[in-house]
């Protein structure tokens, strides 16, 4: 390696005025995007189960056909968490993206989580509970079976089209984070 990449540093608690006050993006899919429209509600909890109210979540996903970077589909979103540790994105359910050795990946959304106390962003993925493709997903297959549930968003019983995803930090039952 010729040059050492620049080290990561924490986003700190005071990023909002620069990154999310007028530069937030809650909607990943414009009105012209095809597919099933959903709301994706993310909630971040720390090691004591307390809401993390000073985090920033960025999402990156493929369109309903499983393609990234399409002209009619931005696929990127960025929101700060509120006092309850929550933020809600509007998007479409992603399609299946090509994976290693020709195996299709199950529909998923890629997540970067940044916050005070995180010296590097944490990377995870959101899968959709009940999707039959989850059984053959090559990335879920890398995760110990008893921890796969932490990567699933669940449909909200009271709000059709809304999926809830919890990110738990710093505990035995924490969300699976990926080394990428």
């Amino acid at each position: 390696m010729d040059l050492v990449p620049s080290p990561s540093q924490t986003i700190g608690p005071f990023f909002h005025f620069a990154l999310t006050v007028d530069r937030a993006l809650g909607c990943l899919a414009g009105p012209e995007a095809g597919g099933e429209r959903i709301h994706l509600a993310c909630r971040v909890l720390d090691g004591d189960g307390a809401p993390v109210s000073d985090a920033m979540i960025e999402l990156w996903q493929a369109d309903a056909q499983g393609l990234y970077n399409q002209p009619a589909f931005r696929g990127f979103g960025r929101l700060p968490t509120n006092e309850e540790g929550c933020c809600v994105f509007e998007t479409v359910k992603p399609g299946r993206v090509s994976g290693p050795e020709g195996v299709l990946q199950a529909p998923h959304v890629n997540v970067w989580l940044f916050a005070r106390g995180l010296v590097k962003g944490l990377c995870t993925r959101i899968y959709f509970a009940g999707d039959p493709a989850n059984r053959e997903d090559p990335v879920l297959a890398l995760v110990p079976e008893d921890r796969r549930d932490t990567l699933l968003a669940h449909p909200d019983r009271e709000n059709p089209g809304r999926w809830n995803f919890e990110i738990r930090l710093c505990s035995g039952s924490e969300t699976v984070f990926f080394d990428i």
Binding site: P100, G117, L118, L142
Partner: peptide, 25 residues
């Protein structure tokens, strides 16, 4: 970092198209 850092090992993820593509923002 003490109440926010992961306590379990991260899962090594060989890069797929999802990690190798990126937003134009």
């Amino acid at each position: 970092t003490v109440r926010r850092a992961p306590v379990r090992p991260l899962v090594f993820l060989p890069h797929t198209l999802s990690e190798l593509s990126g937003p134009i923002y």
